[in-house]
Design a protein around this nucleic acid. Structure first.
Lengths: 94, 94
DNA sequence: GCGATCCCATACCGTTTCGGTATGGGGCGG
DNA sequence: CCGCCCCATACCGAAACGGTATGGGATCGC
């Protein structure tokens, strides 16, 4: 499991469509399909139901989505905690 | 930034020693040094102080360590949320 | 029913990343 | 001065990634 795979999974879950998710992620569709499939294999459980109209989250996928977002949020916080502090004379309120 | 890098960072931070951390992670020392350095480059800030005895966390590294552990914990939870439930007749107490 | 269309999945290829071995450079202790 | 213990760099083969081309299945219009 990689952070990229989690981002990919979230995008597909939200779009319910591999093609649109690929556009949003700026990669092409086949690698994205592969990542999703490999993630499912690694987790040992399918996350999506493949329908003629696209992808729909299974209950397992719904649960995983919550945790995936939590991971990505934690990564964002980790990045932010290192950002240089804004200048003392904050332009926001003063 | 990758999950592997976060694991590597935590191990080096805990061991304060690249060589021991490498043993613990079952990889060799040079790739581990590279990962740490590349993580620092990506974050734009050094995380460790290099001493003749090993590596010591800088204040920035201490802050980042907290967040790195949070990310890895969230990943663990994500994995766990998919595990098959234990059988109803729990063997723990019977 | 047939062809066009829209999905996702697979095959193949070039590039990049990763991990391992060998080696360099610097500080500390005998 | 010499050996030892650190981390850093150089180089190489293996694995993973992303892109293009293509296949297989289902739906819609005719």
């Amino acid at each position: 499991m990689s952070l990229a795979q989690l981002e990919y999974f979230v995008a597909v879950a939200e779009e319910e469509h591999v093609g649109r998710a690929a556009l949003r992620l700026h990669i092409s569709q086949p690698p994205l399909s592969r990542h999703i499939r490999r993630l499912e294999e690694e987790l040992g459980a399918p996350l999506f139901e493949r329908t003629p109209r696209g992808m729909r989250l299974l209950p397992t996928g719904e649960r995983f989505l919550t945790h995936a977002r939590r991971v990505l949020a934690a990564v964002d916080e980790a990045r932010r905690c290192l950002e240089p502090e804004p200048p003392p004379d904050a332009p926001s309120a003063t």
